[in-house]
Design a protein around this nucleic acid. Sequence first.
RNA 1: GGUCCCAUAGCUCAGCUGGAUAGAGCAACAGAUUUCUAAUCUGUAGGUCAUAGGUUCGAAUCCUAUUGGGAUCACCA
Length: 589
Amino acid sequence: MDFIVEAAVKAIKHLYDTDVAPGDVNLQETRKEFEGQVTVVTFPFTRFSKKSPEQTGVEIGTFIQNELKEVSGFNVIKGFLNISLADDYWITQLYHTILPADFASFKPNGAKVMVEYSSPNTNKPLHLGHIRNNLLGFSVAEILAAAGYEVIKTNLVNDRGIHICKSMLAWQRFGNGETPESSGLKGDHLVGKYYVLFDKEYKKQIEELKAAGQTEDDAKKNALLIKEAQQMLQQWEAGDEEVLSLWKTMNRWVYTGFAETYKELGVTFDKFYYESDTYLLGKDIIEEGLAKGVFFRKDDNSVWIDLTEEGLDEKLVLRSDGTSVYMTQDMGTAQLKYNDFHMDRSIYVVGNEQDYHFKVLFTILKKLGKQGSEGLFHLSYGMVDLPSGKMKSREGTVVDADDLMAEMQQTAKVQTDATGKVDGFSEEEKLHLYHIIGMGALKYFLLKVDPKKRLLFDPNESVDFQGHTGPFIQYTHARIRSVLNRAGLLDIAGAAAYDQLAPEERDLIVALTQFPEAIKLAADTYSPAIIANYVYELAKTFNKFYHEKSILQAEDEASKQFRLQLSAASGKVINKGMKLLGIEVPERM
RNA sequence: GGUCCCAUAGCUCAGCUGGAUAGAGCAACAGAUUUCUAAUCUGUAGGUCAUAGGUUCGAAUCCUAUUGGGAUCACCA
């Protein structure tokens, strides 16, 4: 649409002898109730024209129509110049822009971006909150890749620390040698079971101590189990053979379980980092920061940064005993990642509860003048809450990721079987379809919402399969495929005679042309929701067209071939758009 | 207490850098299938865009304050 903007600029120069920047021309899609496809807002130009908005619109419109052969007409309503482009223009768009294989594929832009997401703890299985994280991270990575970036997907696994020791200790104490094999439990679930058990026993001990007269705080510190867990962590850090062996065994169980969950979710990673490797990093950066005067040392030997000027607090970066804190580690890890990949941008997909942490981390790295620090971004997303409140693994009040995915596929099965459309499918095809649809419903449900908004999930209200949902879009795709399969070989040349567009056809082409802009906007704002909503609008537009116009029974051969081309283009864009969300589309459903 | 985020129809959400009469889906009601997949389509009903000011030709959108909800401010990660 740049050519319209250019023509408008030229019109204003010619008519009112004023130079305006292309950015000053406000171009928008014409609202459905008016004639035309693009609209120029004329209010800003009245100060140059010294005329009414209507008259200004007519003058600019007249100029543009004379200037551009693509413009077939215009109307002005209350200062809005609605421009109609000729059918020929839209048909050309379909053939020469949309249908070619390279439509909406951006040239490599030479920039490298890292997307870090998932970042699980190895003491418990993944839950719904992690699903949101994983889907967001994966989708953002896909979108950035589509927008021309070179993308590296990383997963920083939190595989050490006191919480891991809690699971280990509880297993050691109460597990009786239970293994995934002996219990039939998925490894991550088995370990999670002992994490919950630890908390239960720990609470019991706290109550006992309180009954014996201790305050709550004292009881929490003095309970035998927590002391043992702390001791275990020290042994781990000291490299105790037995503890390390247990740690390795239990983590292996967890990784086997995670791998299954990731596979089911359809997410992948290019590089794993482990905190057990990185938790000691960052100390050299402390020295560097002290030398540069960015950090300062207090009398007790602890190291701090003063960020009060930035509206933040003083922040500890190294303990008085010389050991690292979370911030130290993250500084070190950031450096490590940069050394490994030299990326221009680095996206951290982490919940909004860590907004403060990342603000501080990025500020520190910038103050240190670290390479790549200008490209740091925290993709902060809202928590997934239940009607009962926040999910807490410790207390078992979570929607488990594996359970939820299984449930979604079960619901998909019920809904699909009820239609009777899959009777001819093999058992394998059916299972595959249930998977595609169930996961499509879940993924779309989570991705259509703006990432930064918190999400309420009611387990008692099932995720919809109708309306503004993944299955709606998948269905539209299956519908298109069905028609195309019936049509057999397409004949573009046969469509050449078609030169008069019906409104539904024009609307559909207009919608299709907007795909690249949607990708660009989604990439710039790191928001899969943009793509989700775009694809939904497109599917709706197609369904309307499908309903109004017969394809295979079209009036004549040219109409039929044209509509087949239009359908094929729609199917491709839906497929590609859904792929950016990590959602598959079926051939039949 | 300081800081950050959020608030749009009964419910779940769109609304791009300020632009026309604020849009979808679900739920409710009424319709459409001798015709390419009805997981679809059409229509009806549903709004003080949290509140109050301000900036502007023009504000759901920008600014300020207030209210409500959430998060965070550890020598935890």
